[in-house]
């Protein structure tokens, strides 16, 4: 079980969090023309990479904040965690 540092609450066990997918995905702006390909990339297409991955987690049984976690998908090593509005990389 992972041990995740919530930037708001501190070290907490994984059971307090829920996973939210790739954090590098940017939602297209509202009311903007967008191609089918771009939209598909946003909704469906993910890299599913091995190695360092920036991902979203929500501290669902804690402060309920969405946070960003930089994690190695192969080793589960967590390099860093960020608040939702913090710049990353």
């Amino acid at each position: 079980m992972l041990y995740i540092k919530c930037p708001h609450c501190g070290m907490r066990p994984q059971i307090e969090f829920s996973y939210g997918g790739d954090a590098s995905v940017k939602r297209p702006e509202l009311n903007k023309e967008i191609s089918d390909q771009e939209w598909d990339d946003f909704v469906y297409n993910r890299k599913s990479l091995r190695g360092k991955h920036l991902e979203l987690w929500q501290h669902i049984s804690g402060c309920r904040q969405w946070i960003k976690v930089e994690r190695d998908t192969a080793t589960h090593e967590i390099f860093n965690t960020f608040k939702a509005d913090e710049g990353v990389v």
Partner: peptide, 13 residues
């Protein structure tokens, strides 16, 4: 609730 929080915290802060 998580859905609303997602958009408020990450997409449209």
């Amino acid at each position: 609730l998580s859905h609303l929080e997602y958009y408020l915290q990450l997409v449209w802060p």
